[in-house]
Design a protein around this nucleic acid. Sequence first.
DNA 1: CAGGCTATTTAGAACAATTCTAAAAAGTTG
DNA 2: CAACTTTTTAGAATTGTTCTAAATAGCCTG
Lengths: 153, 153
Amino acid sequence: MLPTPRKSTPKASALDCRLAVMGADLRLTPHRREVFQVLAESTDHPTAYDVFARVKDRSPHISLATVYNCLEHLTTGGLIKQVHVERSQSRYCANLHEHVHFHCDACGMVTDALPAANFAPAEFWQLPPGAKVTRADISIRGLCPTCAPKAPR
Amino acid sequence: MLPTPRKSTPKASALDCRLAVMGADLRLTPHRREVFQVLAESTDHPTAYDVFARVKDRSPHISLATVYNCLEHLTTGGLIKQVHVERSQSRYCANLHEHVHFHCDACGMVTDALPAANFAPAEFWQLPPGAKVTRADISIRGLCPTCAPKAPR
DNA sequence: CAGGCTATTTAGAACAATTCTAAAAAGTTG
DNA sequence: CAACTTTTTAGAATTGTTCTAAATAGCCTG
């Protein structure tokens, strides 16, 4: 049985709007707002621990468990996305536009790359007949502009 | 400093050939051969533990650490590939043809999908200028033919 | 605005997958 | 076969994450 839906807090900012509009049933606690805000201000795909460290500047008493908790709620609410690079720690981003991730094998940096053209996975690969595609996780690996020149050969 | 290259064991099978040809400097121990063989016979992208369980039928005394060790050597030697689905345990496959992975969100099954057409990541996404692409990890998610009909709505 | 409810937060324990360690065993070379 | 290197082993350690139980806070009803 689902809990009774709650309204969001009275005072709303631009971020709050996005939270209110997109997050189906997500109580807008100060912690969740801060976690979201940190992520919205970051372009470097921070890990849960990175987020924890950044939020701590504003809320020194927040615990790592709360950050994980907030990240989970924001993710399931569709407000942020989890990014997986290999099977190392998860990273998060607030960029919800369709994009892929470019990952530098040398420095570990992760950046977003926007699609240059329309892209439909089912057109490019022979998927099992009858399969229903919900999404494609695409991570492109290589060397970033900074690391590429330094590479041997 | 690299260790002196060793020759592979005298008697060579088809698998050994692939191992010998492709694995730059990989001593062909019985364990490594068995791990590779198990993988070559599997199409279900087993986890390290799955491989461990399957190899144990032939070599009851093999340890999990050895399986991890063999998988790592086979991977760095380019003989097998690691497959990552989200950040759950790694899976492995011996299919070295260019392909992507289709992952069913309902049953967790992973299958290979071959490219229907030529595919160059740099054509589809605006990667950072100067970046050097070495590979694209593409995992397509959705529902497999078995699970799709059962899904609600 | 007190009482009752539910949700959130917390610190720390637990967990799972993997890697590390140190020692034993096996293989290779001179 | 002696000296050396590599592989294998069992178990400990590590890492990133999730779980737990208790404390706290938020909201609604009367």
